[in-house]
Amino acid sequence: MRRAVCPGSFDPITNGHLDIIARASKLYDEVYVAVMINKAKKGLFEIDERIDLIRQVTAEFGNVTVESFHGLLVDFCKQRDIPAIVKGLRAVSDFDYELQMAQMNNGLSGVETLFVPTNPTYSFLSSSLVKEVAAWGGDVSHLVPPIVLQALDQRLKKD
Rank of each mutant, 00 (worst) to 15 (best):
K42P: 00
K42T: 14
G43H: 06
L44N: 11
L44W: 08
F45K: 12
F45G: 09
F45Q: 13
E46N: 09
I47W: 04
I47F: 03
I47C: 08
E49Q: 14
R50F: 07
I51D: 06
I51R: 10
L53V: 03
I54P: 00
I54H: 01
R55N: 15
R55F: 00
R55K: 15
Q56V: 06
V57T: 13
T58E: 07
A59W: 01
A59E: 12
A59H: 06
E60Y: 13
F61S: 05
F61M: 15
G62V: 05
G62M: 02
N63A: 13
N63K: 13
N63P: 09
N63E: 11
V64E: 06
V64G: 02
T65G: 00
T65W: 01
T65N: 06
T65S: 11
V66S: 09
V66F: 03
V66D: 07
S68L: 01
F69C: 04
F69W: 06
F69S: 04
H70I: 08
G71A: 15
G71T: 13
L73D: 08
L73W: 12
V74K: 04
V74S: 03
D75L: 10
F76C: 11
F76E: 09
F76L: 09
C77H: 08
C77Q: 07
C77V: 08
K78Y: 06
